[in-house]
Design a protein around this nucleic acid. Structure first.
Length: 571
DNA sequence: GTCCAGACTTGACAGCAGTGAG
DNA sequence: CTCACTGCTGTCAAGTCTGGAC
């Protein structure tokens, strides 16, 4: 039986929060799966120092293989990467090795590199027998991929412990190249219920700790050595626990929809405040609302790449223009955001905003904070006063979902073909991705695949032309000699023309879609920002199969929405 | 207030499997 | 059957936000 309104789970209030912070009653699992032990290189594969063969100790050799595997990557050409790697590698060496190996430039990993290339080649040419073995292996690991939470079998998101390797940060990360160490069972904390079957550590080992904390959702955790942060094993997005949280997130965003007008007048009032702090707050929230910027927490300098969000914007990240490209009062943004993705945007703003920004920038250096009186904690406290549960990131969710809903309403009509509807959907999705600045590297094969598509279109055009000629010819013949046979021929030729026209149209749509998608990533917004009920309702209303919009993983994650939504739902 | 640990969401991307054309 | 291309899945880094200690 499909319920139209989601039932409020037992022990939860209407926002889906547990009253007592408890996330589960029972939790049982098998613990984490460890990566395989290091296998030393065969004897005929050598490392060379200064041209001489050197037999490395297993621990040193393992770290050398991490570097050797990356030899072709741009990373290894960066000085920071090399420096970090070499320092950490030397830590792993025996005294003797450390005495000998003093300069990375004298190290020759090429033979090791080639060895791994050959191995990859071999793996590709795997026989059926080996593939069957792989399948069997998969079956063996399957039991690790599920747990039992409150009596339900649930899929786990990441049940493997991360393997050792070299840290690859994004952008200009000061820690790139550092050694990410192998995690031992002795580093691992297990979280499960008291009365459950406690997972067994590997033979000869023991866990760091076994705890029974029902106020958190993770099953396994460990501390990672590069940043000192905690890593977790948690449930898959398809799980009930994650699904409810997701639903709750969108409900809060819908609540903002009802309050947003009041909040907007409030922050506009702040623009005129006597207090500098309130003015900054007003402008920051305006940016977060209008441009879907991230909150922008402070980051530890020198520990991470230099990236910013709204509150951490610096003077150097914006340029003010009284006039630009025929527009008035324009702010030009240019900064690196999350994952060192560039945000570049020229935005016309209200006169008062520009005036305020000028004020904020007065007597400051380029590397001074633009909003020096506020931070994300203060901003979120203010937002909480306007609406319970409101934080900066809710604006991203709200604006993304609202945009999708608006765009879909505007771009779809029922007389479109399914293909046209899907193009409309993708366009709506794309508007959101642009708003949220979700970018991707242009696919490596982009130019080529566009060219292929173009050729296909040209071929179709020719076929269509020929078909049209044949149709005309057939019509002529029929006019002169009205036989049944010729009538049939005309009909047949008409059908061919029709079919070709359809195919051509489809190809052209595909081309447009792909071109417009070149550097835009749709996945992130689809997965994290767009209320799935909007898409489900749209599919139902316009007769588009849900499979055209969501793949299997996405359908699993959004099962809650697919179940509960009818075609009238509006965000 | 400020600092920091902790928990959880968000994000780009590599590598793989599946698929359809030749 | 092979090969090229695409879409999916897993990976793990990088954010947000909360709460507690001082």
């Amino acid at each position: 039986v499909k319920t139209k309104t989601l039932e409020i789970p037992e022990g939860r209030n209407k926002e889906g929060c547990s009253h007592d912070g408890k996330k589960w009653k029972t939790l049982e699992h098998k613990g984490p799966l460890f990566p395989p032990e290091y296998e030393p290189l065969p004897e005929n594969v050598s490392f060379y120092y200064n041209g001489e063969h050197v037999q490395l100790s297993p621990a040193t050799e393992e770290v050398a293989t991490f570097y050797a595997k990356m030899l072709e990557h741009e990373y290894t050409t960066k000085e920071v990467f090399q420096k970090n790697f070499f320092a950490d590698w030397r830590e792993e060496m025996t005294d003797e090795e450390r005495g000998l190996i003093r300069s990375l430039s004298k190290c020759d990993f090429r033979e090791i590199h080639q060895y791994f290339l050959d191995q990859a080649e071999k793996r590709k040419a795997m026989t059926k027998e080996e593939k069957r073995q792989k399948e069997a292996q998969k079956l063996l690991t399957e039991e690790y991929s599920f747990c039992t939470l409150d009596g339900h079998r649930e899929k786990i998101g990441n049940f493997r412990v991360e393997p050792p390797g070299l840290f690859r940060g994004r952008g200009e990360h000061p820690k790139m190249g550092k050694l990410k160490k192998r995690i031992q069972p002795e580093d691992i904390t297990i979280n499960c219920s008291k009365d459950s079957k406690i997972p067994a550590p590997p033979a000869g080992h023991r866990w760091k700790k076994v705890q029974h904390d029902d106020t958190v959702t993770w099953l396994v955790s460990w501390v990672e050595n590069v940043q000192g942060s905690i890593k977790y094993i948690m449930l898959n997005p398809s799980s009930k626990l994650k699904g409810e949280k997701d639903w709750q997130k969108y409900e809060i965003a819908r609540k903002l929809k009802l309050k947003v007008d009041a909040i907007r007048s409030e922050y506009r009032r702040d623009w005129k405040s006597r207090e500098m702090k309130k003015r900054q707050r007003g402008v920051a929230i305006y940016f977060i609302d209008k441009l879907a910027l991230r909150a922008g927490n402070e980051k530890e300098e020198g520990e991470t790449a230099d990236t910013v969000g709204c509150c951490s914007l610096r003077v150097e990240h914006i340029t003010l223009h009284e006039q630009l490209d025929g527009l008035e009062h324009v702010v030009e943004f240019d900064f690196l955001g999350k994952d060192s993705i560039r945000y570049y945007n020229k935005v016309p703003v209200e006169k008062r905003v520009l005036k305020n920004l000028k004020l904020f920038m007065e007597n400051k250096n380029p590397d001074d904070d633009l909003f020096d009186r506020i931070n994300t904690t203060y901003l979120n406290k203010t937002l909480q006063d306007s609406m319970k549960g409101l934080t900066a990131k809710v604006f991203r969710t709200y604006n993304a979902s609202t945009t999708l809903q608006d765009q879909l309403n505007r771009l779809t009509s029922s007389d479109m073909s399914v293909e046209e509807k899907i193009l409309a959907y993708n366009r709506a999705n794309r508007a959101v991705a642009i708003l949220c600045n979700h970018q991707r590297a242009a696919p490596k094969t982009f130019e080529k695949s566009m060219q292929n598509l173009q050729e296909k279109i040209e071929l179709k055009e020719k076929l269509l032309e020929t078909a049209k000629k044949e149709l005309k010819e057939a019509k002529n013949q029929y006019r002169q000699n009205k036989t049944d046979k010729l009538k049939k021929l005309v009909e047949q030729k008409e059908k061919v023309v029709e079919r070709l026209k359809e195919q051509l149209k489809k190809l052209r749509l595909q081309m447009t879609d792909r071109e417009e998608n070149k550097v835009i990533a749709l996945g992130t917004s689809k997965l994290n920002y767009l209320d799935p009920r909007i898409s489900v309702a749209w599919c139902k209303k316009f007769g588009v199969p849900i499979e055209k919009i969501y793949n299997k993983t996405q359908r699993d994650k959004f099962a809650w929405a697919i179940d509960m939504t009818d075609e009238d739902f509006q965000f």
